[in-house]
């Protein structure tokens, strides 16, 4: 999968001042107006709607919706799910990026493609897989029933589905980053006598720390916001197996619109925080980057 949504690793050039060879000012204004209007219509408005609808019945109703025990349970479950899924996929991402970026082996391209698979699978199918595995008639269904373990329609199933959906996120950030950084610094460290672990801890990790953070931020956003996959697996048991997005759905389907949007506003806030954090991390990475290669210099 191309790195369309990965962290920038080089600063974008400043927009060029339009010279005489550029399009006429009128065309520029039309294009700019079209672009901004389109973005306002398609992106900004929905965000605004969430906030206005959340407060439509006043702050009191808003606060009450958030204090509702089911909503609080949903918050707790969402946080728990992310707290499990993100670290696991973080470790996976580091391992995958290390093997892919620092070594060559047959089948590497296939591996990279496989990592992207969860991206392309419809969330509903993602959830369904786990029902087929662990549901009552699933492959492990009878065994689980015998041992009194519930996975589907219980928290473990939600966690599993979330893990599946967020597998690629950290890996996709780290792989191009580590490929770009090459192997020379690690080789230099080993020649100087560092052990494998020392090399990894002192040389590799500091070089990738912003990419790691970026990956964790986007992985977390997706983990907390996952809807389709979790919807299939959860069974919608109020107060027990509802994450925040599911809680939003239930409230909305029961026409508790203000409450639904109140809960949704929490998720919207999460989205905004995610976008801000991402930009900050990107900024740090760009401003900390040192280019130690390929430079012609005129002083010894």
């Amino acid at each position: 999968m191309p790195q369309a949504l990965a962290m920038r690793t080089s600063a974008p050039p400043r927009p060029r001042r339009a010279g005489p060879a550029a399009e006429p000012a009128l065309v520029r204004w039309i294009l700019m107006a079209t672009a901004l209007a389109f973005l306002a219509l398609f992106l900004a408005l929905p965000l605004v709607v969430v906030l206005t609808e959340a407060f439509r019945k006043g702050v009191g109703v808003y606060a009450a919706a958030l204090r509702d025990p089911d909503a609080l349970a949903a918050v707790r479950l969402t946080l728990l799910t992310a707290a499990i899924a993100v670290p696991l996929n973080l470790v996976f991402g580091v391992a995958a990026a290390w093997s892919i970026a620092k070594f060559t082996f047959p089948g590497k391209q296939l591996l990279v493609t496989l990592i992207d698979v969860p991206f392309t699978v419809s969330p509903v199918i993602a959830g369904m897989m786990f029902v087929l595995l662990f549901g009552a008639q699933g492959w492990f269904g009878p065994w689980l029933a015998d041992h009194g373990i519930g996975i589907v329609f219980a928290v473990p199933g939600i966690v599993l589905a979330t893990i599946f959906v967020t597998v690629p996120f950290v890996a996709r950030e780290l792989i191009p980053l580590m490929q770009e950084q090459g192997t020379e610094e690690e080789e230099a460290a080993m020649v100087l006598g560092a052990s494998g672990w020392q090399t990894f801890r002192r040389i590799t990790i500091p070089s990738i720390k912003w990419g790691l953070l970026y990956g964790v931020i986007v992985c977390n956003a997706r983990a907390m916001g996952e809807f389709g996959a979790v919807s299939v697996v959860s069974g919608h048991i109020r107060g027990v197996t509802n994450t925040l997005p599911l809680q939003v759905e239930i409230l909305y389907n029961e026409y508790h619109l203000a409450a639904a949007f109140a809960v949704a506003s929490l998720l919207a806030l999460l989205a905004i925080v995610t976008l801000v954090a991402r930009s900050l991390v990107e900024w740090f990475e760009l401003h900390r980057r040192t280019d130690t290669t390929h430079e012609q210099e005129t002083t010894a």
Partner: peptide, 18 residues
């Protein structure tokens, strides 16, 4: 390599950037 007591200077320096 780490037990060979060799010093290696790379063409592109490979200094630890951070």
């Amino acid at each position: 390599v780490r037990d060979r007591r060799v010093g290696f200077v790379f063409q592109h320096y490979a200094l630890f950037r951070h």
